[in-house]
Design a protein around this nucleic acid. Structure first.
Length: 311
RNA sequence: CGCGGGAUAGAGCAAUUGGCAGCUCGUCAGGCUCAUAACCUGAAGGUUCCCGGUUCGAGUCCGGGUCCCGCAA
C-alpha cells in the first residue's frame, strides 16, 4: 500500500518505522523547522530527522489548508491511505478524504477518553492505572472518528511522560500493520465512539507547571510525572522561580500530623508540607539563573531555605 | 544585538563604603562510641572564569572576551 505519513514528535517515530517495513511511504509530512532555544536556532522535528535518514520524500507545509499547491501535491502522490501520528495540525476534510482508505489516526488514549492534544499527560496527571492507544478513522471533529482498535497498557507508578509515551508508541507500532490490514480487508468494522463518555484534554502551557502546595503530595507527584521533561514543575521562593527537577512523595510514616498547616513550608532535609497532611521530598532543584542542584547541595548553600515558604 | 541571573576550595553559597578571601557539606588525620550518615578536635585544599585598565591596595570599580543558566519564542 502507498502511504503518506503525517507526524512530528518522537512518539511518531516507531510507528513510521513499522509502517515502512510493510508499506511504501511515498511521502512524510511534518511541521516546519522551528526556532528553538536562546540562540533561536532552527531545529527540524524528530520525524524530519528520521525521514531524512530513511531517504523519504519530506514535506513541511506551514499550513495544510492555505499553502498553494499542497493539496494537489498530496493528491498527485497517489497514496492509498494517510496515517497521522502526533502531527500537530488539524487536517481539513479535503485532505482527509483524498486517499481511497481515507486517513487513519493513532491517538494515545483509550478513546473516547482524553481526546485532544495532551492525552498522555492527562492520564499521568489523573493518576490513572491504565491508558492505551487508539486507531481510528479521522473525520471533521477532533479525535471523534470511528475506532479500528484500542490497546490498553498499564501505567507504572514511576512512569513519566517520557517513559509512558515510549511504551505507548512502541506498543502501537507493534500492531499498526495488523490493524491497517484488518481495516482494508474489511475484517474489522469501524466502530463509532460513545459520544456520552468522551472527555477532553487541553494544550499544555508553561504555567501548567506551577505547583499548588495545597494539593496533596501525590497529586503534585502526578503533575511532576505528567510534565516531565516539559514544561516541568516549578514554584516560587524569595520571589524567584524555583524549578523542581526531581521530587518524591514522602511515605505515610514520615508524616507529622498537624505540622502541615502551612502548605509550602520547607522542613528539614528539603521536605515540603503539602495539602491533606502529606509531604514530599525535593531531590533536585534549580533556581532561576543557576544550574540544577541536588537538594543536599542547595541546603548547604542556602541556609535560610529551611523554614521558608514556597508559593 | 529579545529580557534577565550567574562564574569565588571537590560541591552548594557568603564576603559591608575597595582593606589579611569565609560558611555549610565533603575529603584527610586523630578522639569518643557496641555502633553509625551521629558527636568532639585538628588539617589539607584558592591564579576569586580569561585579558587589560584605575588604585598604595581589586573578588569588589572601568573596558573587552569566554562559558553556564532562567524567561520569552
Amino acid at each position: 500500500m502507498k502511504i503518506i505519513f503525517f507526524g512530528t514528535s518522537n512518539v511518531a517515530l516507531p510507528i513510521l518505522e513499522a509502517l515502512s517495513k510493510k508499506h511504501e511511504i511515498v511521502a512524510v509530512v511534518t511541521s516546519p523547522d522551528a526556532k528553538v532555544g536562546r540562540k533561536q536556532e532552527l531545529k527540524e522535528s524528530p520525524v524530519s530527522v528520521l525521514a531524512t535518514e530513511m531517504k523519504l520524500k519530506l514535506l513541511k507545509p506551514v499550513k495544510v489548508k492555505g499553502e498553494a499547491g499542497f493539496v494537489e501535491e498530496l493528491s498527485a502522490l497517489g497514496a492509498d491511505m494517510f496515517v497521522v501520528v502526533s502531527y500537530g495540525k488539524i487536517l481539513p476534510l479535503q485532505v482527509i478524504n483524498l486517499p481511497k482508505y481515507k486517513t487513519v489516526n493513532v491517538h494515545f488514549s483509550p478513546l473516547p477518553k482524553y481526546r485532544g492534544p495532551s492525552p498522555i499527560q492527562a492520564a499521568l496527571q489523573n493518576g490513572d492505572e491504565y491508558t492505551g492507544s487508539s486507531v481510528f478513522i479521522l473525520d471533521e471533529k477532533v479525535d471523534n472518528g470511528p475506532l479500528l482498535s484500542t490497546e490498553i497498557i498499564k501505567i507504572d507508578s514511576d512512569d513519566n511522560y517520557l517513559t509512558l509515551s515510549q511504551k505507548l508508541a512502541y506498543k502501537a507500532a507493534g500492531s499498526i500493520n495488523q490493524v491497517l490490514e484488518d481495516y482494508v480487508t474489511g475484517k474489522t468494522t469501524p466502530l463509532p465512539q460513545d459520544e456520552a463518555s468522551a472527555t477532553y484534554t487541553k494544550i499544555i502551557s508553561k504555567t501548567d507547571g506551577q505547583i499548588d502546595w495545597n494539593k496533596s503530595a501525590y497529586e503534585i507527584y502526578n503533575q511532576f510525572r505528567a510534565f516531565f521533561p516539559w514544561p516541568g514543575v516549578w514554584t516560587r521562593w524569595n520571589g524567584k522561580v524555583l524549578k523542581i527537577i526531581d521530587l518524591e512523595p514522602a511515605l505515610k510514616s514520615q508524616a507529622e500530623p498537624g505540622s502541615a498547616k502551612n502548605c509550602g513550608l520547607v522542613l528539614d532535609g528539603g521536605k515540603i508540607a503539602c495539602g491533606q497532611d502529606t509531604f514530599l521530598w525535593l531531590k533536585m532543584v534549580q533556581l532561576e539563573g543557576k544550574k540544577e542542584t541536588l537538594i543536599q547541595d542547595f541546603l548547604n548553600g542556602y541556609s535560610e531555605f529551611v523554614g521558608s515558604e514556597l508559593k
